[in-house]
Design a protein around this nucleic acid. Structure first.
Length: 470
RNA sequence: CGGGCUGUAGCGCAGUUUGGUUAGCGCACUUGACUGGGGGUCAAGGGGUCGGAGGUUCAAAUCCUCUCAGCCCGACCA
């Protein structure tokens, strides 16, 4: 007897599937102001895990957390020409406060290069103060017209790193280090997402940057999503905010700065990369709940056995949760945990228990197996590792299957309908980029032939990865 | 800014053409019983300024005018 699907199948309508998952997995709701979002507890628990993992890597890279204000004097934004040009259409500006009109309007930060620049200038005097490596976790506002929860919202949460260095080489190296050691490492190892890394074309560059590096991921429908960026800002901000130092010889020098960020958009990437028709599939290393122990029926000691199992799992370092609800049917609860993408479910019921067994179910494959009550906890870390590896493997396979090597713009346009196309940058060029843009196809990044970040777009052999993007 | 469409229960919708009892349906929700190995079954319930204002009428979700909000297409921008 075929039942109505829990979610709109991905193949029927991918955007609809995405909306369905957000609601049914209790991730997020739309906020009352257009373009804003409410992140629900389960969604936020995943974001907290992302924060923890990214934050640890940022600290390993030597940056320290700080906090700068939400409100920025409007005059700050206008100092850097490209920067203000890029952001002014989407600024939220406060003109009235305290019951009267403000002398100088304040903008709600769309990003914090300007305020942080102002304070870097104050704090940096000597070459001994460099590098200055700062990060902040904050919300930012960009008044977007077309919004989708997590992917593009008017207010979102992120981390923004801001650093100042003595030389261009140091700044460039640090921007690359963040891309590699913080972002790519996190996305591949924790999110199980095989992101591409590369540099952005002039067209796609951050407003005010001299170079933008990015991580790009492929979603389940073949479209691309920018998951994180790292910018070399040259001396653009250093000059206008006078971020300068005295070198060892006693001469005044202008600093070189960088900025880099990842946001709640990664939530959207996670959902659309691994999700299937049954809901989310959360990689174990990210999952806020890695294993749910589900009591099928509270009889013959099932609830007690399940409780002991949860304790054992926690003792073994597994993030485990007990579901002993007796007021909801087994099928409903199984479906709910599948929607939420919990990597492993252990079913404890009287029937199995009579044989001293429990049932272990993998969310990624749906595969069920029997295990002994006494031995199962010890096997779970291995199962979680396998799920983690298989999710990465499946996403990598899909990306590779849907990536075409092409040599003409027409072929690139064709291939981008279902995935990524790799075309020599020398063939495409900025003119070809503009041609593809008419069909909503953009250059996601420029790479060396072996998938590394090129030092410049003019390097021989540079390949443009083009796709439709979110 | 122009064109089109939609506003009815938490969500999704029917009812509007042709005005007429107490405004309906599915899901969700509450209570109880039986259940429980894949969205359980049965029974009994709760929940509505029909986007808002004004008008026509014995009578308006339904007709008229105005208005607000949202969505789509175009234009603008890149």
């Amino acid at each position: 007897m075929a039942k109505a699907p829990v979610l709109t199948p991905q193949a029927d309508d991918f955007p609809r599937w995405y909306q369905d998952v957000l609601a049914k997995a209790e991730l997020a709701d739309n906020g009352p102001v257009r373009g804003t979002m409410v992140i629900r507890p389960y969604g936020y628990s995943l974001w907290e895990r992302m924060q923890a993992e990214v934050d640890a890597r940022i600290k390993d890279a030597g940056a320290e957390n700080a906090y700068f204000p939400l409100f920025i004097p409007e005059s700050y934004l206008t100092r850097e020409a490209e920067h203000v040009e890029g952001f002014s259409p989407e600024l939220a500006v406060v003109t009235h406060a305290g019951g009267k009109e403000l002398e100088e309007p304040v903008v709600v930060r769309p990003t914090s290069e300007t305020v942080i620049g102002e304070f870097m200038a104050k704090w940096i005097q000597s070459h001994r103060d460099l590098p200055l490596l700062l990060n902040q976790w904050a919300n930012v506002v960009r008044w977007e017209l077309r919004t989708r929860i997590f992917l593009r919202t008017s207010e979102f949460l992120w981390q923004e790193g801001h650093t100042a260095h003595a030389t261009q080489a140091d700044a460039a190296a640090y921007a690359v280090q963040i891309l590699h050691d913080v972002y790519r490492d996190f996305m591949v190892d924790v999110l199980a997402m095989p992101v591409l890394i590369g540099r952005k074309t002039r067209q796609e560059r951050f407003a005010g940057a001299i170079n933008t590096l990015a991580c790009e991921a492929m979603m389940g429908d073949g479209k691309a999503l920018q998951m994180g960026t790292s910018h070399e800002l040259g001396q653009n901000f250093a000059k206008v905010f006078d971020i300068a130092y005295q070198d060892a010889e006693g001469t005044q020098q202008t600093c070189w700065t960088t900025s880099w960020g990842v946001s709640t958009r990664m939530m959207g990437g996670l959902i659309m990369c691994h999700g299937d028709d049954a809901g989310l599939r959360i990689p174990p290393r990210l999952a806020s709940t890695q294993v749910v122990v589900l009591v099928i029926k509270d009889a013959d000691g099932a609830a007690e056995a399940a409780g002991r199992l949860v304790d054992e799992l926690r003792a073994a370092g597994v993030r485990a949760k007990l579901d002993a609800r007796t007021d909801t049917s087994f099928g409903r609860r199984a479906t709910d945990w599948e929607l939420k993408g919990v990597p492993v479910r252990i079913e404890v019921g009287p029937r199995d228990l009579a044989n001293g067994e429990v049932t272990v179910v993998r969310r990624d494959t749906g595969e069920k197996s029997q295990a002994t009550v006494d031995g199962v906890a010890a096997t779970i870390p291995g199962v979680l590792d396998a799920v983690q590896a298989d999710l990465l493997g499946a996403a990598t396979r899909r990306r590779d299957e849907r990536t075409a090597e092409v040599t003409t713009i027409d072929e690139a346009r064709e291939a981008a309908q279902v995935g990524f196309a790799r075309i020599p940058w020398a063939t495409l060029g900025e003119q070809g980029e503009a041609v593809l843009a008419q069909d909503a196809i953009t250059v996601r990044c420029l790479q060396t032939p072996d998938g590394q970040v090129p030092a410049s777009e003019d390097e021989p052999g540079v390949v443009a990865v083009v796709a439709r993007a979110y």
